[in-house]
Design a protein around this nucleic acid. Structure first.
Length: 777
DNA sequence: ATCAACGTCTTC
DNA sequence: GAAGACGTTGAT
């Protein structure tokens, strides 16, 4: 068996073998490890374990004392067996150990001695494939391209490996402990991908066009490394190809991705921004180019974001910014061709996702500008692997069945704070989407449905016509192939570098204040201006609320975009996020306060059962298909896995203040759990819950319950089993301010008026609408 | 020497 | 596949 291992596997296995030899001189037989043979390690160096950077936000935190790993620690009374870092302290950017030296010259990194420009060649770089740590300058193989991986500091695929055609999937790069050990780790997918390595060759043949296409760029790949590209003109820019995605990958660590909405919006926002300043910093494009040139495979993420218009009116800013004449001056992001435009629409197409992007694009649209090849040149193998993945994605999606859905006319959405939903602009933008739908039902129709039937204050539809939740995409769509690390450590310059070597007079924080007034869409434009702005605009203070509502495909790159922005509020409603994705997200968003998952599948939402989200205050699981009493029990029950040292019997959602359960088939059994496990619950939405009745209200308001005093708002609209009697129960609630009984057939206006009259002794209530009782302040 | 915890292997 | 265990590395 071991003998049949591919060469690809040998590299990987050799790594583990080496480890095993060190750690386990006499490994037990019979395991998978036992059959792996030591292999040719000619290309592999000894791995150096990475260590925490001590500077990132995570490193600066104190141990939470509550997470799985903390509880294991002896200091927290645990057995100390797991020996893992606190989840809240998982280093974002693990660094090479201080003792690491260049295998060529034997010296340590010398980046501190030089200016930014030259740093790269004298800093230690660790190859994620062969693990060799070298100064790029010390390498003899200089005519091949190294691919810098920004996921990790000082990490690249060295020119030797890159030139040799090794692929990232062969590696099990160092410094990935964080992701690989966490629940929902996507790193492990690397293994999976690796194991599929054998098929690469076959898919290579299948993907000949791409291979050929890529080979056309080989000469470019041999260009000297690290050369800055010239500024590109939009017309020269091809649409993203698979290898662009891989280049994208290197962006994951610090310098953020930029969005591509400017393509769709054709300069609407970008024309409006800072023409004068841009003149000054335009020369930074050289530097920025490597950040900005890549076609944005995160576009899906940004497409979702761009819907959110915090200013609500970009034109206002445009006027202030003298934007009318900036068109020619603005260092516009690379505009994409119409073909690319359609590619973007893959956002919600079955081909969505980074793995699939470009998959529908069989050929290069002409030679890629040389400059764009620069220093992160993907190799053929990477492209092949990617294409293979793309193909799988497409295959998976092709097999996905869609169910027909009744379509109703649109009505306005309920939450005014929300911008226009993505659904509103789908039809025009993604004409091809419909043609891609299986079984005749356009995907978006199913997903528009919920918002279209929102007569009341929450997303709702009439009982019995529950919208079908989106299905999770096939696993292959969701597979991350890279590690995402939480907020970027981007020690940004205090001031903006200018062309003449000087810096701009305005300090960073002033810029930040300015950026704070921008919409996410505008921020995305700013990110394309220059590297510095790219960093600044990724500041999580600017992204406290990320709305991907109805963004159909949640792709790995979108996930990484979310993680890096560490939002406090995340709206994933009516998306097809998978359990694994959600779990992965939650585990990396320790500060998340608001999570909106309405219309998602229970399978996805069940990620909450196993993930810790200690600060979550608002949870929206309206219209989650399959979420019933049993599932609520799973959701609300304390962890059952109480091993020694893990004695937390508290509900994972114990801090919820606002719970939205509209449209669920839950009964009093769930309410009892809620009462028991959510002592702080203040707002409860039970609208469209057909099993909710007077007894339910009685439970919620019974003596001894926490909800009796904590509830301030309750929504029972369209709960047809609720009668006038419930109103008498609400009189017991000390804090109740808002009782929504609209469309409750068995609730009369007379009873509401009587309630108001009787309550007037202590609290003044009024009828805001028919059967909508509200405290008058 | 001690502590923290990385990265891999084992177990469930 | 996820979670747990643990030898060893890296920092102090």
């Amino acid at each position: 068996m071991a003998l049949s291992l591919s060469a690809d596997e040998e590299d990987y296995d050799s790594e583990s073998e080496q480890k095993r030899e060190a750690n386990r001189p006499k490994p037990k037989m019979g395991t998978s490890a036992a059959v792996k043979l030591p292999s040719n390690r000619s290309a592999s160096g000894a791995r150096r374990r990475r260590t925490r950077c001590r500077k990132c936000e995570a490193c600066l935190r104190t141990e939470c004392g509550e997470c799985h790993f903390c509880k294991d620690m002896k200091k927290f009374g645990g057995p100390g067996r797991m020996k893992q870092s606190c989840i809240m302290r998982q280093c974002i950017a693990p660094v090479l150990p201080h003792t690491a030296v260049c295998v060529v010259c034997g010296e340590a990194g010398k980046e501190d001695t030089l200016e930014e420009e030259d740093k790269f060649n004298v800093m230690l770089m660790e190859c994620s494939i062969c693990n060799e740590i070298v100064h790029p300058n010390c390498l003899k193989v200089k005519d091949a391209s190294g691919v810098v991986n920004d996921e990790l500091p000082n990490c690249w695929e060295c020119p030797k490996c890159n030139y040799a055609g090794k692929t990232g999937k062969q590696k099990r790069g160092p410094g990935f402990k964080y992701a690989s050990n966490l629940p929902g780790s996507l790193l492990k997918e690397q293994k999976a991908v690796k194991e599929e390595g054998e098929s690469t060759s076959t898919s290579t043949a299948k993907r000949k066009p791409e291979g050929d296409d890529i080979s056309r760029h080989r000469p470019e790949e041999r260009e000297p490394l690290y050369r800055h590209p010239p500024v590109l003109t939009p017309s020269t820019l091809p649409r993203p190809r698979p290898e662009d995605k891989l280049r994208k990958k290197r962006k994951l660590f610090d310098d953020d991705e930029e969005e591509d909405f400017s393509v769709r919006k054709k300069g609407k926002a970008d024309e409006s921004l800072f023409p004068k300043l841009l003149h000054q910093i335009k020369t930074e494009e050289e530097d920025q180019e490597e950040e900005v040139d890549k076609e944005d495979t995160d576009s899906l993420f940004w497409r979702g974001l761009e819907r959110r218009d915090r200013l609500g009116d970009t034109e206002d800013w445009a006027e202030d910014g003298d934007g009318k004449d900036t068109k020619t001056n603005f260092p516009r992001p690379p505009l994409k061709t119409p073909v690319l435009d359609s590619d973007q629409s893959h956002c919600s197409s079955p081909q969505a996702g980074p793995s699939s992007e470009g998959g529908s694009e069989p050929q290069e649209k002409g030679p890629r500008p040389k400059a764009r090849r620069k220093r992160r040149l993907p190799n053929k193998e990477l492209s092949k692997a990617l294409n293979q993945e793309i193909q799988k994605t497409e295959d998976c999606l092709a097999n996905e069945n869609r169910q027909p859905l009744k379509v109703e006319p649109e009505s306005e959405n309920e939450e005014p704070k929300r911008g226009f939903r993505i659904g509103s602009d789908l039809g025009g933008e993604r004409p091809h989407l419909r043609t891609k739908e299986m079984n005749g039902t356009p995907w978006e129709l199913r997903h528009f449905y919920p918002s279209q039937i929102t007569p009341l204050g929450f997303n709702r539809s009439s009982p019995g016509t529950r919208p079908l939740p989106p299905r999770s995409p096939p696993k292959c769509v969701q597979m991350e192939r890279h590690v995402i690390r939480p907020p970027p450590i981007s020690p940004p310059p205090d001031r903006l570098p200018l062309v003449d070597g000087k810096t701009h007079a305005v300090q960073r924080e002033v810029w930040m204040k300015l950026f704070g007034h921008f919409t996410h869409k505008e921020l995305c434009v700013c990110m394309r201006v220059c590297k510095t702005w790219n960093r600044w605009c990724c500041d999580k203070r600017l992204w406290t609320n990320i709305d991907l509502n109805r963004c159909k495909s949640i792709t790995p790159l979108m996930l990484s975009g979310i993680i890096r922005r560490q939002p406090l509020s995340l709206d994933l409603s009516w998306t097809n996020i998978s359990k694994k994705q959600l779990s992965w997200l939650i585990n990396r968003l320790p500060g998340l306060r608001v999570l909106l998952l309405s219309g998602c599948s229970w399978v996805a939402v069940s990620a909450l059962c196993t993930s810790s989200c200690p600060l979550l205050r608002t949870l929206d699981v309206q219209w989650v298909e399959g979420l019933k009493d049993a599932q609520m029990r799973d959701l609300l029950s304390p962890p059952t896995d109480n091993r020694p040292g893990q004695l937390d019997n508290r509900c994972k959602l114990r801090n919820i203040l606002d719970l939205r359960l509209a449209g669920l088939d839950i009964t009093d059994a769930s309410l009892r759990l809620i009462i028991r496990h959510m002592p702080l619950l203040s707002r409860l939405d039970l609208s469209y819950c057909n099993h909710i009745n007077d007894h339910s209200v009685n439970l919620l308001t019974a003596a001894g319950t926490t909800t009796r005093d904590s509830l301030t708002e309750i929504n029972l609209s369209v709960c047809n089993r609720v009668t006038d009697h419930s109103l008498t129960f609400f009189k017991r609630c000390g804090s109740i301010c808002h009782i929504d009984l609209r469309y409750c057939k068995q609730v009369t206006k007379t009873a509401c008026e009587q309630f108001i009259a009787e309550m007037s002794v202590s609290v003044q209530f009024g009828l805001k609408e028919d059967k909508l009782l509200q405290k008058l302040s």
